[in-house]
């Protein structure tokens, strides 16, 4: 009986250690899973154009939208929309101006509608890949370079690419 108790205790201790360790192992696990599954890659350029063939048989209208959330920046696309052939490389400029008297660091988060478009946009360059620090009243024009896959479903002739700029927490002085 005593020995049984002791082995049980040892087993429970090992189980506790393993669980505790698993908590920490989750971080690399999560990163690996995201890389493999291609999840949560907001902050990286896409791997490149999967299909460089330009599909001239149809046009896709891409609308651009800009929002700021609790951030007094002036943020707008310089074009409201573009018409492109799938596969064609597009460059769009966004203009950002910090209206505050202090330096602010912001991060832009993209969003697409219809949601299916997200999987068919390959971004090669984007200001959303990293945090952007603006000096007081600084004004900058920042580009987004992307292509639309030619496998974008034909039911989606128009989609909207929207960015929301957030102030990065903990950076305000």
């Amino acid at each position: 009986m005593k020995r049984e108790n002791r082995t049980l205790r040892v087993k429970l201790l090992i189980a506790a250690c393993v669980m505790f360790g698993f908590g920490f192992a989750l971080i690399p696990f999560y990163k690996t899973i995201c890389e493999v599954a291609g999840l949560n890659n907001l902050l990286r350029a896409d791997k490149g154009v999967s299909n460089s063939q330009i599909d001239t048989s149809r046009m896709v209208m891409v609308q651009f939208d800009a929002n700021t959330r609790n951030l007094a920046w002036r943020f707008k696309p310089l074009q409201a929309s573009v018409n492109v052939h799938p596969g064609q490389m597009v460059r769009v400029d966004y203009e950002v101006e910090n209206t505050l008297d202090r330096a602010v660091t912001g991060q832009a988060i993209p969003s697409y509608t219809p949601m299916v478009a997200e999987r068919h946009v390959q971004k090669l360059e984007c200001f959303c890949f990293r945090q952007q620090t603006f000096a007081a009243h600084e004004k900058r024009v920042m580009p987004v370079v992307f292509t639309v896959d030619s496998d974008l479903p034909t039911e989606v002739p128009v989609f909207t690419l929207s960015y929301t700029f957030f102030e990065v927490a903990g950076t305000q002085k």
Binding site: F64, D65, A66, N67, T68, N70, L71, A72, W73, R74, F75, K76, P77, A80, T99
Partner: peptide, 16 residues
């Protein structure tokens, strides 16, 4: 207001 097409200043300033 600024003549730009999609000027965000008005709404965001009001809510800021």
């Amino acid at each position: 207001s600024a003549p730009a097409t999609t000027d965000k200043a008005a709404p965001s300033a009001a809510s800021e």
